[in-house]
């Protein structure tokens, strides 16, 4: 590879600063998966149709397959790998587990990020069913019919329990 296709960029990934020489032709999805081994994001189309590669760049949800890695210079990137901390799932992840919103799981990392971005943007606001649906319309799922994902998004938006994670019957359908 010649020097012309390499560029040194710096960003934070899930809170950790990284600096690396990347192939300027690569998408951010490719750099994250191939260069950093962050394989949580998935590629279902490569052209921004399916949303399986959704991540957050400076708190904005993007399809990382059509987001050039060079554009991420100096940005703060969040991927699904950074959402669970200290052995505990994020509220959104827990809601997906509890509501049965996961089947094959291939769209799940992208959906988790889409819901996370939506929940953070809408904090303190009341949202309509249509707003939930529109905010996730860029993420395709072929397994669930979106129903349980809808339920998980709703659950992600409810105020925290006084005793989070201490649900009496975590395995029961509500």
């Amino acid at each position: 590879m010649t020097d012309q296709v390499l560029k040194q960029i710096t960003f934070t990934i899930n809170g950790v600063k990284r600096s690396l020489a990347i192939d300027i032709r690569k998408s951010l999805a490719e750099v994250l998966r191939q260069d950093l081994g962050l394989t949580g994001l998935k590629q279902g189309c490569g052209v921004g149709e399916c949303g399986a590669c959704s991540i957050m760049v400076d708190d904005v949800l993007v399809d990382s397959c059509i987001f050039l890695a060079v554009w991420a210079d100096n940005a703060a990137i969040r991927t699904v790998e950074g959402e669970a901390r200290d052995g505990k799932l994020s509220k959104v992840q827990q809601a997906y587990v509890d509501e049965g919103a996961v089947q094959c799981g291939y769209c799940t990392p992208g959906f988790i990020m889409a819901t996370t971005a939506f929940v953070e943007q809408c904090e303190g606001k009341t949202v309509s069913d249509d707003e939930i649906r529109k905010a996730h319309a860029g993420n395709l799922c072929r397994c669930t019919g979106y129903q349980h994902i809808f339920n998980a998004v709703e659950k992600s938006m409810t105020p925290d329990d006084p005793m989070p994670g201490q649900d009496d019957h975590p395995n029961q359908e509500s």
Binding site: L38, T39, G40, L41, T79, V80, E81, E83, A84, L89, Q93, Y96, V97, D98, G100, V102, G105, T108, P109, I112, P170, N171, Q172, E173
Partner: peptide, 14 residues
């Protein structure tokens, strides 16, 4: 019973 999927955590964490 609607037990939690055996692979749900693996999938939501990527």
């Amino acid at each position: 019973k609607s037990v939690k999927r055996i692979d749900a955590v693996a999938k939501v964490t990527g």
